[in-house]
């Protein structure tokens, strides 16, 4: 496989996952602001700013963050970059994958053309999330399980780990929301919602939403597909399968991702609060970006 193509696949996986994640977080934050509009505006604004920071987005209005074609960080632009990447690799992805992504792009363009209001924005956000689900489905149903598929999926799970870790980190950052306040009651469910984890969490913890349990679930739940543990374990598994194509080159990459997964799986944090979790997440972020650059150096820069 061409190095340039492998690179494009990896980043396409990342862009699509990032767009899905961002859309979900923005939608959850929009709801939070509506709920807290009367009660506690400060908390709502602070959560909003925290989320934007975790997503590395500038402080702009929701409509610009979603559909502004001139704003490089907008979701429209992310989808357009994913599509440009897909266009570069059309001969290695299945025709159905391209068609699905292209369709999603055009329906976003159509909502820009239709003019923006509350309902088009919300539609665009849920549209992006379901586009990403459809994309995953089409990919799994139609793409050959070669190294290309592995690079694409690795991009997805590296991005997912990073996204979830940042959201948990943002929630733990020192803030005006003290425990036991009304803000505290809403913000933890919002965190779950922004990661599509509400129902899954409730099944595991039917009693109530509680800080320690939420953190534990989002970071260490082995079976929840958007937890840090699940994502790092999947990335490690994918890198192990790369060895089949690259017996020599793949060794260090595999070890690198394997170490991260093990570190998460066997993490032993007793209190699960800012004092323990924040440094843990910082370390995780660091080793994840190291693994990502090692992967790129090994396979994409021939």
């Amino acid at each position: 496989m061409l190095s340039r193509v492998a690179d494009a696949l990896y980043w396409m996986g990342r862009y699509i996952e990032r767009a899905e994640h961002t859309a979900r977080v923005l939608e959850a934050m929009r709801d939070l602001r509506l709920d807290l509009r009367e009660v506690n505006r400060e908390v709502a604004d602070e959560q909003w700013r925290g989320a934007l920071k975790a997503l590395s987005l500038p402080e702009l209005s929701l409509s610009r963050l979603v559909l502004d074609p001139a704003e490089p960080t907008s979701l429209l632009c992310s989808m357009s970059r994913a599509r440009e990447n897909a266009r570069q690799v059309r001969e290695v992805i299945s025709p159905e994958m391209w068609e699905k992504l292209n369709q999603s792009y055009w329906s976003l363009r159509d909502s820009v053309a239709a003019g923006q209001n509350e309902s088009t924005l919300s539609q665009a956000l849920t549209g992006i999330v379901s586009s990403s689900f459809l994309w995953d489905g089409v990919t799994d149903a139609s793409m050959i399980r070669g190294e290309g598929w592995l690079f694409l999926k690795l991009g997805k799970f590296v991005e997912r780990t990073d996204g979830v870790a940042r959201m948990v980190g943002a929630r733990l950052a020192p803030s005006g929301v003290s425990s036991g306040t009304s803000g505290e009651n809403v913000t933890w469910p919002t965190l779950l919602k922004s990661l599509d984890a509400v129902d899954a969490y409730r099944t595991a913890h039917p009693k109530r939403v509680e800080r320690r349990a939420v953190i534990d679930f989002l970071l260490f739940e082995a079976d929840f597909p958007r937890s840090v543990r699940y994502s790092t374990a999947t990335a490690a598994d994918l890198s192990r399968r790369l060895r089949r194509f690259h017996p020599e080159l793949g060794q260090r990459v595999e070890r690198c991702f394997g170490r991260i997964a093990a570190r998460v799986e066997y993490a032993d944090l007793d209190t699960l609060d800012a004092a323990t979790v924040t440094p843990f997440l910082l370390e995780l972020g660091g080793s994840l970006s190291e693994a990502s650059s090692l992967l790129q150096k090994t396979f994409f820069l021939c």
Binding site: M1, L2, S3, A6, E91, E147, H246, L249, C302
Partner: peptide, 25 residues
Amino acid sequence: GISLVEGSDLVVRDGAVCMRTTQGL
């Protein structure tokens, strides 16, 4: 079923044209 290459994917080594792949030239 062939590779779509751009100029930067190609390199001439020992008189032969090669493409840069994840497994080398």
